[in-house]
């Protein structure tokens, strides 16, 4: 029962509330059923020994406490710690590179250059293509035997590079592909750049500030909220990287692309070890949450807020 601890509400307010709740039914459903409830389920299953065998035999799984959470770190054939390292390494590398690259392209595209609309469209194309299709194309371009990039390298007198087939170069190569596909960030930066107040720029120009000074003193500060937003979005996307491992590298060379999602896929749908997969999933969430929290907390120091806008 609702307790009215606040002054009595008018009819209007109650009507508005009711309307809001009706409008929000889909979000309620989505947040509870397909987001937070499965998260709790992952945590719950992670404490059991559920495998495909239980489901086939119709047996109830046993409660095993923290066993799975300990196992995924101590069992060398799972080695979740390595997965955390390679995923976070990839994700941070990709976030920083994508943000720098897309900011650079957005600034270029924001100038009055011929065919601007066309180029804007071009840079967005990689983002819309199926990742399987593009990773296959990249894997051929980067092939050690007969790849175009290595052909250029040989012709320029360099040694061939193993790109996707050596533990040192595979993550940087995948970062390059991730950067290539980050057209969405460019568009969002473009949106931000158009909102940098004209008056600031003009005032600075009158004061004799050169391009570089204007960039650092006006553009960047005004863009910090957008940079933050893009970093966050890019982080979430890149933490989930899985298609290159599925389609090309199978987690190798070594364990260098044994990304968390791939490991989860391998133990869940691929082998039916659901308890292990759920433990991985839950810890994955914790890691993503921690990284996002770190980003949020540090952001207070570098985000420049123009006015007192509510979040």
């Amino acid at each position: 029962m609702k307790k009215s601890d606040k002054p009595p509400k008018s009819n209007m307010v109650i009507k508005e509330q009711r309307a809001a709740y009706v409008f929000l039914i889909p979000a309620f459903l989505g947040l509870s059923l397909i987001t937070y409830l499965p998260l709790l389920a992952a945590l719950f299953v992670g404490f059991t020994d559920l495998t495909i065998g239980h489901m086939v035999r119709g047996e109830a799984p046993q409660f095993v406490g923290l066993k799975n959470f300990i196992d995924i770190f101590t069992n060398p054939s799972i080695d979740f710690f390595n997965s955390i390292l390679v995923t976070v390494y990839f994700a941070l590398f990709a976030v920083v590179s994508s943000v720098v690259y897309s900011m650079f392209i957005a600034i270029l595209l924001n100038r009055r250059i011929p065919g601007r609309a066309f180029f804007r469209a071009v840079f967005y194309v990689p983002y819309i293509l199926p990742a399987v299709a593009t990773i296959i194309s990249w894997s051929f371009l980067l092939r050690f035997e007969g790849g175009l990039i290595n052909y250029f390298l040989v012709n320029m007198g360099f040694d061939r590079v193993h790109f996707l087939s050596s533990a040192e170069t595979v993550v940087p190569s995948l970062v390059m592909i991730a950067v290539w596909a980050c057209g969405n960030l460019i568009v969002i930066f473009l949106a931000g750049l158009q909102n940098v107040p004209r008056t600031y720029m003009e005032a600075a120009e009158v004061d004799g500030a050169n391009f570089w000074q204007r960039f650092w003193k006006i553009t960047i500060p005004c863009m910090t909220p957008i940079i933050f937003f893009n970093m966050l979005m890019s982080l979430v996307v890149n933490l989930q990287i899985v298609v290159p491992a599925l389609a090309v590298t199978s987690g190798g060379p070594g364990k260098s692309t044994m990304f968390m999602t791939y490991l989860m896929y391998h133990y869940g749908p691929r082998s039916g070890q659901y308890a292990t997969a759920s433990a991985i999933a839950f810890l994955f969430f914790m890691i993503a949450a921690i990284l996002a929290a770190v980003l949020f907390i540090t952001s207070k120091n570098w985000i420049f807020y123009e006015g007192g806008d509510d979040k």
Binding site: L39, M264, A281, F284, F285
Partner: peptide, 8 residues
């Protein structure tokens, strides 16, 4: 929250 988490 990465969608991959709720996959399983």
């Amino acid at each position: 929250m990465p969608a991959a988490v709720t996959l399983v």
